[in-house]
Amino acid sequence: MSNSTETDSLPGQRFRERFPLLALVIERMLLSILLLFAVSVLIFGGVEALPGDFATTYLGQSATPQAVANIRSELGLDRPIVTRYFEWLGGAVQGDFGTSWASRNSVSEQVGKRLGNSLFLAGFAAVIAVPLAVGLGMLSVHFRNRMPDKIINVISLAAISLPEFFIGYLLILYFAVNFGVATFPATVYDGMDFLDRIKAIALPTATLVLVVLAHMMRMTRAAILSVMSSAYMETAELKGLSAWRAIARHAAPNALAPIINVVALNLAYLVVGVVVVEVVFVYPGMGQYMVDAVTVRDMPVVQACGLIFAAVYIFLNMLADILAIIANPRLRHPR
């Protein structure tokens, strides 16, 4: 870029020119925060717009207009919606999600325990699914359009086509009921030792792995294939490099960004998609907690769960984008 454009540019532009990488990362983070606020408005507004309310559900047959109004004023529902939103948001930013209407306990405390359980389940599924998917992806590249590739493709497609609750019930039927090798329901409690815990979550983990495997595997395959057909891979071959060296040194760094992206997207899906699986396996995680809260219209819990799921999703996507930005040599080493 010529000198004339530099002198009359704004400080922000100058910063962007000198540290393009840092500028992009910061920009991406700010965008995530903005997005999270937008989501919080949607969640609060959405929950507010739901038909039916806690007071009528709670009182059941004895819901006289007076009793309903009493409970509503007790919970502060008679105040304007904007005030309540900012109160809720102010609390949420400090980690305080208010009190559950149904149990009168602190939501944050309850969520803390449940979130730990959910992350353990999702994390364990990820530890198995990610290496497996990338490995299978590489395998199917190696055997491209031959039998192993086709088998991997068909099985993973079948797994992604079945809804996760159906896979869950199938696994329960065969492994817990017919063969009796796995436990059901997947109950975990404090002070349980690690091995027992793993044994308890074996089936929900297997369900989640089957659901996310296909997508990651196919994206890995596509990313590597697109890199393999590029001109610099031909250069590597014409340099007489071994196939292993060509893949490890020349293909891998360039295939990384798209693979990171799809992995992060699926991790986010793991955390969020866990809701249905937890209900099927009666696992005491966030998903179960949220579904229970919805049935009794316990809004503070629903809102807290919604916001936490959204935050995890946005955070993981942000992480993927930032890693992809850093993996790009053009941004890491500007002209």
Binding site: A231, Y232, E234, T235, L241, R249, H250, P253, P329
Partner: peptide, 25 residues
């Protein structure tokens, strides 16, 4: 045997060096 010839005894210069160099190194 071929690999020992390529890049050692016979080398190749491509039309588009921009595509033939690996952007990551």
């Amino acid at each position: 045997g071929i690999r020992k010839v390529r890049g050692a005894r016979v080398c190749y210069v491509a039309q588009s060096a921009a595509a033939a160099f690996n952007p990551a190194h």
